[in-house]
């Protein structure tokens, strides 16, 4: 999808730029005509330039939609298996949006609920030291 959308974006950009350049050329040409001439008064941008610009815009819009990827997440804890949701955009309603947090094990209010500023650093370090000692014993 990423390759297709890139190709489409490049193609549509070329179409839009080309139609813009053609329009500029057409108006430059028109300026060279006498202002009271019949062809100046009845002038209109040629249909092919109009169609080219419209086709460019439509293709660009489609390409942008193609560039969306399915939402992917890694769980915060446990085995690191990529979770791919069948969605391209995030949910707006809160009760649905928080489903992703539940899926990956995230607490959006963790900065409060985990009380990070009251952590006993020595206890954490002791736990690590014990774990490292146990690991060393296993290796021996």
């Amino acid at each position: 999808m990423a390759l297709l959308s890139t190709i489409l974006i490049l193609f549509s950009s070329a179409l839009i730029l080309h139609s813009g350049f053609s329009s500029h050329e057409f108006h430059q040409l028109l300026k060279s005509l006498p202002q009271d001439s019949h062809s100046y008064l009845g002038h209109q941008l040629p249909k092919d330039i109009q169609y080219e610009a419209i086709a460019g815009i439509i293709t660009f819009t489609i390409a942008v939609f193609f560039s969306f990827k399915k939402l992917t997440y890694y769980p915060l804890q446990g085995p690191q298996k990529l979770i791919t949701l069948n969605h391209y955009l995030h949910e707006i309603r809160m009760n649905k949006a928080t489903n992703v947090d539940n899926l990956i094990g995230n607490d959006p209010y963790g900065e409060i609920n985990h009380t990070p500023n009251f952590i006993d650093i020595h206890a954490k370090r002791e736990e690590t030291k014990r774990w490292l000692e146990q690991n060393d014993k296993k290796e021996i």
Binding site: T72, Y73, P75, Q77, H114
Partner: peptide, 20 residues
């Protein structure tokens, strides 16, 4: 997804509850 994981861990401070 990788960036999202580390940012989530960092902002939620869940790493303070992790095992060694």
């Amino acid at each position: 997804a990788i960036r999202g994981r580390y940012i989530s861990i960092c902002t939620s401070k869940v790493y303070t509850q992790f095992s060694p």
